[in-house]
Design a protein around this nucleic acid. Structure first.
Lengths: 211, 211
DNA sequence: GTGAGAATCACCTGAAAGGGGGATGGCGTA
DNA sequence: TACGCCATCCCCCTTTCAGGTGATTCTCAC
């Protein structure tokens, strides 16, 4: 099944010892995989990566202290050649998107079969991306999507400038309108998003990809 | 190649007529695809989706007025059963992540071959996700990643609460510390991120997936 | 042509945030 | 031990923001 004789070196990161053990025994069945180490948190992982430079790091997303997402980001920054596959028990798409945004090239569910793990490792090793199959939009996450308010074009402009760090006077100058007008738009934004300060407004808008 | 006799109904969205025409002729070669329509912007697309309810919408990302990302979000909200495959000429991962976050189940490069488009349509139709192969971490995007400041655990807590919309007095109460202390942490956050107000701080932190 | 919504401008008040400064104890490490 | 880093607390002052209320123009659709 392998096109080369080199073994894929692999590091597994998870805060649950049971999971690590399970992965170890499962991976032992794959002749072409060399398990370079097991880490129970991001710091251990970074140390081992520094020492061993594995081809692939298979990491849990939900870990205390430093999440798998942050770990992926660290790996991308310090060891760009090392590929990251994320694992999670949840199907939330938001995690997938975050992981990819932070450099992961694969996403596996922990419930993945032996065959799926095998396919993921091989494809990622060969330079492709691999996404878990079981992602057919579950119902619960649908309703989780809160509807965004409808913004006018002017409100969008103001929102953009706010998110760029402009103060109201700066926005007024840029848009050639009065400070009062900017203030009004800003208040309308807060009202429409149903929040009471800028911080939350910007977080919601950013997560909704309006910015 | 198809496991069912039903044709896959498809809507293509792109603001370049040439691309639409090219897709039309290419798709005509796939016997199992029924092209329900071509749209040159998001509004046309939504109208056609409402009428035709295609299985899959293949949409460009870079469109004026309303981007493909926003269109994906609209489709997810109004027609959850309709699957979205995004297309773009660029390889930026950030677009991929955003598209997925907003409901896309596939990502194609416009340079994709006939075979790749075929595979994408079939896999998405069958309920899987499909990601373009040609995504081996290009160099330019690497350096684009700006390094984030190192935050202390306390600063992370404060940052999180700020992003939740808490004011300094509220944060002080929650963390059982003085208002002055919260203020100090907040100032340090602004300094570390090299910004001068909360709005930009939150945007950067959110985009970096710290929140 | 009436009405709805958008965009504009205005005034007021109090709370919150931003920008300086300085100070203390704790804790780990060089 | 001395230094750096963190977390904590305190003061000053100015600017900005949030909440409320109200009004005028303009456009677009009905």
């Amino acid at each position: 099944m392998m096109s080369t004789t080199e073994k894929i070196s692999l590091l597994v990161v998870d805060d649950h010892p049971m999971v690590l053990e399970g992965m170890r025994s499962m991976l032992a069945q794959f002749g072409y995989v060399h398990l370079t180490g097991l880490a129970s948190n991001a710091w251990e992982a970074m140390d081992l990566i520094k020492q061993e430079r594995p081809h692939i790091v298979l990491t849990d997303i939900n870990m205390p202290e430093v999440s798998g997402i942050e770990l992926a980001e660290k790996i991308r920054r310090e060891f760009p050649g090392v590929k990251v596959i994320a694992m999670s028990t949840f199907k939330e798409r938001s995690y997938i998107a975050q992981m990819i945004q932070h450099g992961a090239v694969g996403y596996l569910l922990k419930s993945a079969s032996r065959e799926e793990i095998e396919e993921a490792l091989l494809r990622v090793y060969e330079g492709y991306m691999y996404m878990s199959h079981h992602l057919h939009m579950t119902e619960p996450e649908q309703q989780e999507t809160k509807q965004l308010p409808v913004l006018t074009s002017r409100e969008k402009e103001v929102l953009q400038l706010i998110s760029d760090g402009c103060t109201n006077p700066e926005i007024a100058k840029r848009l050639f309108i009065s400070l009062h007008t900017v203030d009004t738009h800003r208040k309308n934004l807060l009202t429409k998003f149903n929040v009471n300060n800028t911080a939350l407004l910007i977080k919601i808008a950013t997560k909704a990809a309006l910015l």
